[in-house]
């Protein structure tokens, strides 16, 4: 239903959006300021030198690489396990199916701090030293949920007789997965993977509890706020984080949009 909104509503909506997005714009502006001691407004001058400074800071590169590695590996783990789990829950019925479904979703419903604390004490109890892999495990817990949710919805909308039809036409189970299942769930998987990547990339709370000495990019930024040196470097990094997390989410949105028709359903 389309109708003309009253002026007051338009103004209120505009103000709300400004309130949400103006601060982000400010972060971007300060990445170009010439004055780095007190963040004076308006900036006395604009410069690109902070990009060069950031480029030469090895701690930024270390944090960025770590974050990218953690996000990539957690996403891959989540895509494999999340898809398998979704296939099991959507396609077969077994004892405790609903429970499994709930337990998989639980990590994202729980506050991150609970996940973080429980993982930390679990790692301690099991005498697992905190490392790159403990961060990956921590991130995978909530990345699986995103992939699972996307995949299970697509599986439910894909007619089960497609698999039987493929088998009937001579395809083995592997061929059926390759030629029939994968093309039908690919966009959902990609979207789930992108969301998982973005979630992992800017995660702070679980990382705090599961990391040892390593600093992911968001942790590095927190640290910089407390003990700043060359403050606008943080702003430059913030811009990078926004781009790295925003682009996949945008991509996921475009991939899953317009797929409301049920695959394999006859009308």
């Amino acid at each position: 239903m389309h109708s003309k909104a009253p002026l007051g509503l338009k103004v209120a909506a505009g103000a709300g959006l400004l309130f949400l997005h103006l601060p982000i714009l400010l972060i971007f502006v300060y990445a170009f300021t010439t004055e780095d001691k007190s963040y004076q407004w308006p900036p006395p001058g604009l410069t690109l030198k902070w990009f060069a400074v950031t480029w030469n800071r090895s701690d930024v590169w270390e944090a960025l690489t770590l974050s990218l590695k953690v996000a990539s590996i957690s996403t891959v783990i989540a895509m494999v396990l999340g898809t398998l789990c979704a296939a099991a829950v959507a396609r077969s019925s077994f004892f405790g199916r609903e429970t499994v479904s709930l337990l998989v979703i639980l990590p994202i419903a729980l506050p991150g701090i609970i996940t973080g604390i429980s993982l930390r004490s679990a790692f301690n109890l099991a005498d697992i030293p905190f490392s790159f892999w403990t961060i990956v495990l921590g991130h995978a817990t909530f990345c699986i949920v995103v992939v699972y949710n996307n995949a299970v919805a697509r599986f439910r909308r894909t007619s089960g007789s497609l698999v039987e039809a493929s088998l009937d036409l001579g395809a083995t189970y592997f061929q059926t997965f390759r030629f029939i299942i994968l093309p039908n769930i690919a966009t959902a998987l990609l979207a789930g993977g992108m969301l998982a990547f973005a979630l992992s990339f800017d995660e702070v709370i679980v990382t705090t509890f599961t990391a040892g000495q390593q600093q992911t990019l968001p942790i590095w930024m927190l640290e910089e706020l407390v003990r700043p040196r060359q403050r606008p470097v943080t702003n430059v990094v913030a811009m990078v984080v926004v781009l790295v997390t925003f682009l996949p989410i945008l991509g996921a949105y475009y991939l899953t949009r317009g797929t409301d028709t049920v695959a394999g359903q006859s009308k």
Binding site: S159, S161, L162, E164, A165, S166, D168, L169, I180, P183, N184, A263, G264, Q265, S266
Partner: peptide
């Protein structure tokens, strides 16, 4: 050596 015509046709949508 058999093939099936399914009730819902099960045509591959992609």
């Amino acid at each position: 050596p058999v093939n099936t015509v399914f009730q819902d046709y099960a045509l591959f949508p992609h």
